[in-house]
Amino acid sequence: MHKKLILLLTLLAAIVCGGTTTTLLADEASAAKVQKLIDAADAARKEAASVGGEWRDTGKMIKKAKKLLKKGDYTAAAKLANDAAKQGHLGYEQAMSQKDLKMPSYLHY
């Protein structure tokens, strides 16, 4: 009887503790994932800036994503980081697609 109870309690403890560790691990894993997304967004922003194509709000979005990450709001932080990365890529593309100046057709030479 006693043995059984101890066994049961140990099992229970193992489950509970195990559970906690998994959530903790999962927490760390998502934080690291979001941090990676933020780093990628910042790299994209810098790439756009290197060709003069950075957009107004990209840096602000990255700052906000960092704050959300600190608060533990991973979903919102990840979304913002992804949006910022997209802006970085688009800004870079925008500048590169106009590498060669094309004068407007309405100007007559």
Partner: peptide
């Protein structure tokens, strides 16, 4: 001068306007 000209006719930002879109075209 050419760099300034290029700036003037280059689309920029999320809204994709060059200076020329508003003040020339």
């Amino acid at each position: 001068y050419e760099d300034g000209k290029k700036f003037y006719y280059t689309r920029r930002g999320q809204l994709n306007f060059a200076c020329a879109h508003c003040h020339l075209q």
